[in-house]
């Protein structure tokens, strides 16, 4: 399955690469050469994976997959919430969520998360003066 995916991706990359036309060539090779090479590598890798598939791949149980899905969703929610909710609150929330996914007790997890978020804020904003978002919600 992964092999087929690779072959298709490789073909798509090559197709896209043929559209890299420039009006006048600044150099004899142009912007197409490397993408076409890459596409060939994808197709080659995919073909081998198709011909000789790995037999020892074990997929995790549905329960683990569900927890992984939750973790990915938590990451994406974090990305969306960060500019809006601010660094401290969104980090506390996402770290709590992850801790619970790793089977931490809820109360301890959220306490540890808040401490961590506060510590990181102090380290980055105060000590290193790297800006982290405060949150639009609180500015308005």
């Amino acid at each position: 399955m992964i092999g087929g995916l690779l072959v298709i991706t490789g073909a798509a990359l090559a197709l896209e690469a043929t559209t890299f036309d420039v009006a006048f060539m600044t150099d004899p090779v142009g912007p197409k050469a490397l993408p076409l090479l890459v596409a060939a590598m994808f197709v080659a890798g995919g073909t081998v994976a198709l011909v000789r598939p790995r037999s020892d791949v074990t997929l995790p149980s549905t329960e683990v997959l569900a927890r992984m899905g939750c973790a990915v969703v938590a990451f994406l929610v974090y990305a969306a919430a960060l500019p809006w909710l601010g660094f401290f609150l969104s980090t506390t929330l996402v770290v709590t969520a992850l801790s619970v996914l790793y089977r931490g007790p809820l109360l301890h997890s959220s306490a540890a998360a808040a401490l961590l978020a506060g510590g990181l804020w102090l380290l980055f904003v105060r000590l290193l003066s790297l800006p982290l978002p405060i949150g639009e919600l609180w500015i308005r």
């Binding site: 990915v72 990451f75 994406l76 974090y78 990305a79 969306a80 960060l82 500019p83 980090t91 996402v94 770290v95 709590t96 992850l98 801790s99 619970v100 790793y102 089977r103 931490g104 997890s109 540890a112 998360a113 961590l116 978020a117 990181l120 980055f124 790297l130 800006p131 982290l132």
Partner: peptide
């Protein structure tokens, strides 16, 4: 359950600090 989420949080901050955009957090995920 403390260690790994802590590492994740550090990763978020590091990524946000290089680019300063949520888009890169999505990309990272």
């Amino acid at each position: 359950w403390i260690l790994i989420p802590g590492v994740a949080a550090l990763a978020f901050v590091a990524v946000y600090a290089v680019a300063g955009s949520s888009f890169d957090l999505v990309l990272m995920t």
